[in-house]
Write a protein that binds this DNA or RNA. Structure first.
Length: 720
DNA sequence: GAGCTACGTACCTCGCATCC
DNA sequence: GGATGCGAGGTACGTAGCTC
């Protein structure tokens, strides 16, 4: 089993009425191996000291031993309960990381019927049908806690070196030795190792496949451990008769031992491997035998043939090719069309009648052998199928249903692939509009949750909710005509962000006035697709609304974009702009030229993007600005600052108001709030859309920060 | 022999147009 | 803006024959 660090599927809840009912023994992964036996590993036995030929019981003994907190789950009942829910609900609930950390310890009463149980979760928590009354070491069905025995005195079947394969229900994976090794390795990590189980997200159907019989316990012994084991078993006794092959006899001379240590180790390793293979094959044979018996029992119970069960077990209808269209299908379709076309519902001929008429229709039946004619009939049926698929689906319901089906199929295909490979990945799907009823869905497998937790500090479901909020609000507001100020800001954002991305300089500023020199020549980047007929200038400087719309649309659609220039292009550009440079562009004369500074104290420098773009000086007297309007709105909504007590108090009150807004909206500071309020013109929007926009803004900020962090800026994403 | 595909009908839900 | 009727599209179920 792959050890991929995935967050496991949630632990199925155990309701009171499900406990101890035809139960399934469940245990937590035991601790790492501490001791190796000095006996023959093939004689690993139950804790009563007798050899047990049934690996399930050995494993079960371990599971029932009370190393951690065993509990019992009626998997079949639980599965039924689960499947009664809607698929989407299952998706949402089952893919959610488990809220309950660990099930409570429950004593194991006797379970009588070890009937095969269809298991639904591929995690080590879910165990296998166990008849505890037959468990070694159990008295009257009550397992004996083997903590009473010191580890060295415990039979190895109860030691942590035995671990049920957490992938036990998959035949293919059971046969896969490497996966079993990984599974066992994961088991060695202790109770937390289940985090590394091969968990899949969005398990709509929480089962991977039925298990027909107890799984094979995997002996967790590494090569080195086996070498140690063999050396411990053989070398001290130095039984001459054990070494039939003289070449393999260990050297007694100490110098020779040192010299031949490598060879000796190699020999021992080969022996260890051979021994291990032998053990594995033996266990596999045992498991196969038990599986055959279990299959026979199920076949008898359900009146199925064993071959049929094997097909069910090993095949996936999802991946099976669809049945090809037959000539008869095409003819039936043609006959039905001929008979029923135009007839109202209720008076159409049923399928039996259609087929009888078809059989009697010698003309149509004569077409069966004619490839050319049948091709026409087949095309007609294919067209009809296509029409059926592509018929206008205008209702939200039909779209939601179709989406659900497609996603379900996608999920099944993904899980099928996931089961058979190490494929990792995820997909997040949600509605794109408020009035849609499409269920949010996450499809994926692998360490997806860990990834989101590490880099976003959010669960996948929180990300999905954020994404849905973002998409719905974005789609809603994106269709709204923008005010000119909004369009200016959006266009400026496109341009500046594009420049920053292509240059990799986060603080670089756009310079329209000296674009050729400061941008093109200096940075070797240029803009392509700027609308013809519109002078390249700052968006805020574009006076004509149509021109501004053209620029905005060009950047929004990607028609306008930044590109890196080749040396050739730079040289050509230099050639063109050389004349301008020689002439020397005159800096625009400042409006305050010749004036006297009012104060010698340095003004607080405020860095704003607009500074670079502004060509005109600020008006001396500020009129009724949007900023003031917004502040008034805030004051009115949050609380009026009260009677005027001087400029400082008003300023302070304004800040407090913004702080309140910031706290309410959970924005980092009031500056952000102010910027958001001002820049986006959101004072005109409903509060609902405003909050959604805030969320979207935070998501954008977070994702861009994380992206830059991932690409080496070393910036930490903000905690949200 | 199970499952797929073809067809049908009955019933339900939803969207849209119309009316008040 | 709410109530109502109609049509479209969907599911569920049934029958029959063919495929794998």
């Amino acid at each position: 089993m792959a050890s991929n660090g995935a967050i496991p599927p949630p632990i199925p809840e155990v309701s009171a009425d499900l406990k101890f009912d035809g139960g399934v023994k469940v245990g937590w992964a035991p601790q790492a191996i501490h001791h190796l036996p000095t006996g023959n590993p093939s004689q690993f036995a139950a804790n009563d000291g007798t050899h047990s030929p049934f690996p399930a019981r050995r494993g079960a003994a371990l599971l029932s031993g009370g190393h951690a907190s065993p509990f019992v789950v009626n998997a079949s009942s639980n599965r039924q309960t689960i499947q009664n829910r809607s698929n989407a609900q299952q998706d949402f609930e089952h893919a959610r990381p488990p809220a309950v950390a660990r099930p409570p310890a429950i004593a194991c009463p006797p379970v009588v019927a070890p009937a095969p149980v269809i298991l639904t979760w591929d995690t080590p928590q879910v165990g296998y049908p166990v008849d505890t009354s037959t468990l070694p070491g159990s008295r009257n069905g009550t397992p004996t806690p083997h903590e009473a025995l010191p580890p060295s005195s415990q039979p190895i079947s109860q030691r942590p070196s035995f671990q049920m394969s957490s992938r036990g229900m998959s035949l293919a994976s059971m046969m896969n030795n490497s996966q079993a090794k990984q599974s066992s390795s994961a088991a060695l990590e202790g109770p937390g190792s289940w985090r590394r189980s091969r968990a899949c997200w969005s398990t709509c159907t929480p089962g991977i496949g039925p298990i027909l019989g107890p799984p094979l316990p995997i002996l967790v012994l590494g090569k080195r451990e086996l070498v140690t084991l063999i050396m411990a078993r053989m070398l001290p006794e130095d039984n001459e008769s054990d070494w039939e092959d003289e070449e393999r006899r260990p050297q007694k001379d100490s110098s020779s031992v040192k010299a031949g240590c490598g060879r000796q180790e190699g020999n021992l390793a080969r022996q260890a491997n051979a021994l291990k293979r032998k053990e594995i094959m033996k266990d596999l044979d045992e498991w196969r035998e038990m599986t055959e018996k279990a299959l026979a029992a199920i076949a008898a119970k359900h009146d199925y043939k064993v071959e049929r069960l094997k097909k069910l077990l090993g095949s996936s209808p999802r991946l099976r090719k669809k049945r090809e269209m037959t000539d008869m299908d095409a003819l039936v379709h043609a006959k039905s069309k001929e008979l029923n076309d135009g007839l109202p519902k209720g008076s159409r001929h049923k399928i039996g009648e259609v087929k009888r008429r078809l059989k009697a229709d010698k003309t149509l039946m004569a077409c069966l052998g004619n490839k050319e004619k049948m091709k026409v009939f087949r095309e007609e049926l294919e067209d009809a199928r296509e029409d059926k698929r592509s018929v206008a689906r205008i209702s939200n319901k039909s779209v939601a249903i179709r989406s659900g089906k497609l996603l379900k199929r996608f999920r099944e295909e993904f899980h099928e692939l996931r089961d058979r490979s190490t494929l990792c990945g995820f997909g997040i799907f949600c509605r794109g509009a408020y009035d849609s009823s499409i269920q949010p869905t996450i499809i994926g497998g692998g360490p997806v949750a860990d990834f989101f937790t590490k880099y976003f500090r959010k669960s996948v479901w929180e990300i999905l909710c954020l994404f849905e909020s973002f998409v719905t609000s974005y789609n809603h507001m994106g269709t709204r005509p923008l005010y000119k100020t909004e369009m200016v800001k959006a266009t400026r954002h496109y341009i500046v962000e594009g420049l920053r991305q292509i240059t990799g300089k986060e603080t670089i500023k756009m310079n329209y006035r000296n674009f050729d020199v400061d941008i093109v020549s200096a940075l070797k980047v240029n803009i392509s697709g700027w609308p013809k007929g519109v002078e390249m200038q700052a968006p805020s400087a574009i006076e004509e609304l149509d021109d501004l719309k053209a620029v905005h649309e060009a950047w929004r659609t990607g028609e306008a974009f930044w590109y890196k220039m080749s040396n050739k292009q730079v040289a050509a550009h230099e050639q063109v702009t050389a004349d301008d440079r020689r002439q020397g562009k005159q800096r625009k004369e400042r409006s305050d030229k010749g004036g006297v500074h009012r104060t010698s104290t340095k003004r607080k420098k405020v860095v704003e993007e607009d500074d670079e773009e502004e060509e005109e000086p600020r008006p001396k007297k500020k009129g009724r600005t949007a900023k003031k309007v917004v502040k008034q709105v805030i004051s009115a909504s949050v609380g009026k600052p009260g009677p005027s007590k001087g400029k400082e108090k008003q300023k302070s009150s304004g800040r407090k108001s913004l702080k309140k807004i910031a706290m309410k909206l959970q924005v980092d500071d009031e500056e952000d709030t102010e910027d958001l309020l001002l820049g986006e013109g959101l004072q005109h929007l409903q509060y609902r859309y405003f909050t959604l926009y805030i969320r979207a803004h935070r998501l954008r900020t977070m994702s861009s920060t994380v992206t830059s962090a991932a690409f080496g800026s070393g910036k930490e994403y903000p905690s949200m």
